[in-house]
């Protein structure tokens, strides 16, 4: 597995982490109504989307590099 493939795995796991953090923050917001939790939840979703876009750009830029 090349660094390219491992980086794709890494970005995928990072996106999942951001979604977990977002869910955790939204859960806290639901329970307590704290504005900061809502803000951090939205920031986490934006980070997840940003990482997805980055992943797509990365794949385009590294299309000539082997997955092995």
């Amino acid at each position: 597995m090349s660094l390219k493939t491992f980086h794709i795995v890494f970005v995928t796991v990072s996106v999942l982490l951001m979604l977990v953090i977002a869910a955790w923050n939204f859960g806290n917001y639901r329970d307590n109504g704290t504005q900061a939790d809502l803000t951090w939840g939205v920031v986490s979703v934006i980070a997840a989307v940003g990482l997805l876009i980055y992943g797509k750009i990365f794949l385009r830029k590294f299309k000539n590099v082997s997955y092995l």
């Binding site: 660094l3 491992f6 890494f10 977990v20 953090i21 955790w24």
Partner: peptide
């Protein structure tokens, strides 16, 4: 870079498990 990614991946799991 492969080693560095592994180290970062460990943290990606460590952070939610230990902190959250």
């Amino acid at each position: 870079g492969l080693f560095w990614h592994f180290v970062d991946l460990v943290w990606i799991f460590l952070f939610p498990v230990v902190y959250l």
